[in-house]
């Protein structure tokens, strides 16, 4: 257990030295505050940006606070996932490629400690970044559009984070055995897009899908209460995440 903390600490030191601890949260905060701001100023932006004929009247109804927050979530689900996957795609594969993995495993360290320490650092940083991003979004939404209960933010974001954890775990898993970190990113993004797409296309058959958690969080933001399936996707996601993490932490065939 002591060695696990040593490895975990090393991950944080590395993420500090290569500034991941700064730029990842920063991107999420930027995305988070862009959404309410662009929603608020949309009519102005359109007026200035487009060369509409003189006298055109632009009327866009102001979205509710909940809708803006749900849009933020949608933004996170596209650009945010891309950022996280690109940031963590090489988490294991780059160390295997450089030979660092061998240098560590020649010491009396368990492979599972090595993987889970990395996994935990990625999860913690992502969770922190997304929370900060949602917080920024909430702050500007309240400021510009209208009041919104803080507890709903916490609940909705927590639900959404389970989906993110699932994708992060998948990234780590692929990174343990794929040679190229580019493939890791490509496959994880593919999985995320496929799951989201299939879930919205075949809603009937995809009630178990982890991507349902995003929908649940969005509905929580918009209407203030949970709509649609929740328990089933929650359980499958947690089980799948645990399973993938287990597989990642046990395979040791190719160093």
């Amino acid at each position: 257990m002591k060695k696990w903390f040593v490895l975990h600490r090393k991950e944080w030191l590395e993420m500090t030295r290569n500034y991941k601890v700064i730029w990842i949260p920063l991107i999420f905060v930027l995305f988070g505050l862009m959404q309410p701001i662009t929603s608020y100023y949309m009519p102005e932006i359109l007026k200035n940006a487009s060369n509409l004929p003189e006298g055109s009247v632009i009327e866009i109804p102001m979205p509710t606070s909940g809708e803006v927050l749900a849009q933020t979530l949608g933004q996170f689900n596209q650009m945010g996932i891309l950022v996280l996957v690109l940031a963590f795609m090489g988490i294991v594969s780059s160390e295997r490629k450089s030979g660092m993995l061998k240098a560590i495993l020649v010491k009396p360290v368990r492979f599972s400690s090595y993987i889970t320490a990395k996994w935990m650092s990625a999860v913690l940083l992502s969770v922190g970044a997304i929370f900060l991003g949602m917080l920024a979004s909430w702050y500007y939404t309240v400021l510009l559009i209208g009041d919104y209960p803080f507890m709903n933010i916490v609940k909705g974001t927590s639900l959404y984070l389970i989906w993110i954890m699932f994708l992060l775990t998948f990234t780590v898993f692929l990174s343990t055995f794929l040679k190229s970190s580019g493939f890791v990113a490509a496959f994880t993004l593919l999985l995320s897009i496929l799951l989201t797409l299939l879930t919205s296309l075949f809603e009937k058959y995809m009630e178990w899908s982890p991507a349902q958690l995003t929908n649940a969080a969005a509905s929580l933001f918009i209407s203030g209460k949970l709509e649609g399936p929740l328990m089933l996707p929650l359980i499958t996601t947690v089980i799948l995440t645990a399973l993938i993490l287990y597989l990642a932490a046990t395979r040791k065939s190719s160093l």
Binding site: K10, L13, E14, S98, G99, M100, K102, A103, V106, P108
Partner: peptide, 17 residues
Amino acid sequence: REYIGYLPQYPVFFPWM
């Protein structure tokens, strides 16, 4: 493993440490 020390042919390190 706790009783052996190993130097690989091309030793690698964390360059940022």
